[in-house]
């Protein structure tokens, strides 16, 4: 029986000849896509991992599995090694998703930190009010996902202290951050409560310089560098997962070290 989708008058057969190369390409693509082979690795050429190919999905599923494994590996009582002050790199190494010339310094006196989500006290915080909380200093290794590292001396309020001060639900899953440079980020509660996770306000004993997150940034000893948002403007405690800037592009969320 003749298909109703067929045109009444068939197209010129020359079309096939004229488009032979394209037709072959389509066929070849089909074969590649359908095969779990080294060739199909080449299908993953996009910039982000939001692709819907079966390989993209499988890789993201593995990344979620690795989040689960990392949460199991994480020891809340294990402290990162600390180093002598003589090893501290001054100034620290700058890194962001843009060049250092593009940073937008924050007006400290007018800056406030918003708090939202599963907390009792949602009042905004000023620098002065944050300075009244107990402080801690740590000299730890910063490890970048790219492979470089340096030793930095950070001081500020332990995030745990801050979360307790605002009456946060410490059984919530996530602590999420918004920043002045549109660099959202989120960490798991276990890491947030680790003694070496600070809301840092100082580096090497001095007030944070603009490129490194003045007036407030996160500094955790147990995660890769990109998990430490700078220029924080808002903190939210919640049970809703919010991927960070790099996670949306395919990097692993836990990124614990």
């Amino acid at each position: 029986m003749r298909s109703p989708n067929r045109p009444a008058t068939p197209p010129d057969a020359a079309i096939l000849d004229n488009h032979r190369a394209e037709i072959r390409m389509l066929e070849r693509r089909g074969i590649l896509r359908g095969t779990l082979s080294l060739g199909s690795l080449a299908m993953l050429t996009g910039c982000d991992i939001s692709d819907d190919t079966s390989i993209g999905k499988a890789l993201r599923a593995m990344s979620s599995f690795n989040d689960f494994v990392q949460a199991k590996i994480f020891d809340p009582n294990h402290l990162a090694p600390e180093y002598p002050a003589s090893m501290v790199l001054k100034p620290p190494r700058f890194n962001a998703y843009y060049e250092i010339e593009k940073i937008r310094p924050i007006d400290g006196p007018n800056w406030t930190l918003a708090v939202s989500g599963l907390v009792n006290d949602k009042q905004a915080w000023t620098r002065e009010k944050i300075a009244t909380l107990p402080q801690r200093e740590m000299i730890i290794r910063h490890i970048c996902v790219e492979g470089w590292d340096y030793i930095g001396q950070w001081s500020g309020v332990p995030l745990r202290t801050f979360l307790e001060a605002v009456g946060a639900d410490l059984n919530a899953k996530y602590v999420s951050f918004q920043t002045a440079d549109d660099y959202p980020s989120s960490i798991d509660m276990a890491t947030a409560l680790h003694p070496q996770t600070l809301l840092a306000t100082k580096y090497a004993g001095e007030t944070l310089a603009d490129p490194f997150g003045y007036p407030l940034r996160l500094r955790t000893s147990t995660k890769l560098g990109f998990k430490n948002p700078k220029w924080i403007t808002a903190i939210e405690v919640s049970n809703t997962y919010m991927p960070g800037y790099w996670e949306k592009l395919g990097f692993n969320w836990q990124s614990g070290i």
Partner: peptide, 18 residues
Amino acid sequence: RIGSWAAESLLWHFAAMW
């Protein structure tokens, strides 16, 4: 290389390691 940039390479690496 496998992976068009580091994010993809990392996904491959941390899957194949298992």
